[in-house]
């Protein structure tokens, strides 16, 4: 084994895993609080990258572009919730308790994802583009080198995680969100405004997705279907970490990033994705509620 490469692999895996964790954090929040399997989350990520790209192309500074993109994607997230999810949840046929629960939400999420993807294809075309990197250069140590951008991504995850934790645990809004995720009916009875909880949850989720997209878009090429793989990986992370568990999303994301880089480094990059989903299958078979999941409520 090429052990001298290990620290370098770990550094790369940490950076890759951080983007997975960012996407998974938003996804698990939306699922944990609102019980929405948001397949369109990958499109928040994709739009974050493309709006940043479009704004940078007009000459705007990368960080300003990213901030604007986050605001726009949050607006899009609200529209998606209003148009795609709320009508389905309110439809008479939708059962919120039975076995088939979530089937129609899942289907409408798939529809929303395809619609956003095809709209992006119509606007920007299918060819891959790149956002000019906002910073170059790297830190070299005796063991590994890490680019400033990778450090930024890891730091962003730390900041985002802290911010989400503070909102959830140190604000009245966060209290409302946590109450809703524990028991929606009881929360409604306590006078918690579901509209505010929905808006806040989608805003946080979409913002996290957009930031991840913009940062990764500065490293890798962007294209309209770029959100598909990360959202699938984020679902894998959710399942590994336990659906609705925020620490699970972080740890799951980092572990997945590390494993992928290891598989690609020591095995073959062709098997990178297969490795991911083999982990998924293994976790689901051995511990269906996920590593950090509480005993799964039978739905």
């Amino acid at each position: 084994m090429m052990l001298e490469l290990l620290p370098q692999q770990l550094a790369n895996g940490l950076a890759l895993g951080s983007t997975y964790a960012l996407v998974a954090l938003g996804l698990t929040l939306i699922f944990g609080v609102l019980l929405i399997p948001n397949f369109a989350h990958g499109e928040f990520y994709m739009l974050g990258a493309f709006v940043t790209y479009a704004l940078v192309a007009t000459g705007l500074n990368f960080w300003l572009a990213m901030a604007t993109a986050v605001v726009l994607v949050v607006l899009i997230g609200w529209i998606v919730d209003r148009v795609v999810f709320q009508p389905v949840a309110a439809a008479p046929g939708h059962d919120s308790g039975g076995h088939g629960s979530g089937l129609s939400l899942m289907i409408s999420a798939l529809a929303g994802s395809i619609i956003l993807q095809q709209l992006a294809t119509i606007i920007w075309g299918t060819e891959a583009r790149t956002i000019p990197a906002p910073m170059t250069g790297m830190v070299r140590t005796s063991l590994f080198t890490i680019t400033y951008l990778q450090i930024t991504i890891i730091a962003t995850l730390a900041v985002a995680w802290t911010a989400v934790w503070l909102v959830l645990h140190r604000s009245r809004l966060g209290l409302a969100i946590r109450a809703t995720s524990q028991n929606r009916d009881a929360a409604l009875l306590m006078g918690i405004s579901m509209t505010r909880v929905r808006l806040a949850t989608f805003a946080i989720g979409a913002a996290l997705g957009a930031v991840a997209g913009a940062l990764l878009g500065a490293t890798f090429p962007i294209y309209p279907s770029m959100g598909v793989n990360p959202v699938l990986k984020a679902f894998v992370v959710l399942v590994i970490g336990g659906i609705g568990s925020l620490p699970g999303a972080i740890v799951g994301g980092l572990v997945l990033g590390m494993v992928e880089v290891m598989v690609a480094g020591y095995g073959s990059s062709q098997f990178q994705d297969i490795g991911t989903f083999l982990i998924l299958v293994a976790v689901l078979l051995i511990r269906p509620q996920g590593l950090f999941g509480r005993a799964q409520v039978e739905r």
Binding site: F31, P37, H99, S101, G102, L103, M106, L232, F235, V236, L238, V239, I243, D273, I274, T276, F277, L278, L280, V281, L284, L285, P288, R299
Partner: peptide, 17 residues
């Protein structure tokens, strides 16, 4: 062995594999 969202995600993973 799974159901609901887990079933969809698992079959999705298998489809991708």
């Amino acid at each position: 062995r799974t159901r609901g969202l887990y079933f969809a995600v698992l079959t999705l993973g298998i489809g991708l594999i």
